Amino acid sequence: MNELKPRIHDEDTGLDYILVGDYYIPAIELPEDDDRPIGKWGRMHQAYLEETNPLLLNHLILTGRLHTYLADLNEQAQERYRIIVQQVMEAEGVTEDLKRRSQWEWIKAMNSIANRAEEVIKSEMINA
């Protein structure tokens, strides 16, 4: 019987495999230079991928790009969220003056703005 090699390389996928017992397991390492957090938006998008597109999720995991992909998406979503909140605050006249005059009105307005901005981000970036 043929002796199995302890390590092989698949040219089609570009992945290396290590022999563990009788099975070859992909030799996957996380990139060490990317220590950015994936954050709330990245975790939400990962859950969306798990439900709707597991093939893409597995591809990102196997190629070692999942963390970078989710961290990039999280940063873009945070910036987009900030811009949306700022624009809606200006459009609806929610200012620091309102905050000084009536804190409860300001809190209600900001909660409404935050909820709407989150829904926009979910529909545009997370569930897309």
Rank of each mutant, 00 (worst) to 15 (best):
G14V: 06
L62Q: 09
G14I: 09
V85S: 03
N115A: 09
R101C: 00
A91H: 08
M1L: 11
I107K: 14
P26Q: 04
I18R: 11
E124P: 00
Y69G: 01
A27D: 15
E79F: 15
A77F: 08
M1H: 10
A71F: 02
Y81G: 04
H59T: 03
L66Y: 00
E75M: 08
L4N: 11
K5T: 10
M44E: 11
G42M: 02
I25V: 09
L57P: 00
N53Y: 00
R82V: 04
A91Y: 05
E92C: 05
K40I: 07
G21K: 03
S112Y: 03
S102I: 01
E50K: 11
I121G: 02
Q78K: 12
L73S: 07
E3D: 09
A91D: 09
N58M: 11
G39Q: 10
N53R: 10
K99Y: 15
V20Q: 09
A128C: 05
G39K: 14
D34P: 06
T52C: 07
Q103L: 13
H9E: 06
E75H: 08
H45G: 02
L73W: 04
E51A: 11
L73F: 03
M125H: 14
R36G: 01
E11Y: 07
I107V: 15
E32T: 09
G14Q: 11
E32H: 04
P37W: 06
L55K: 10
L56M: 14
D10W: 08
K108C: 08
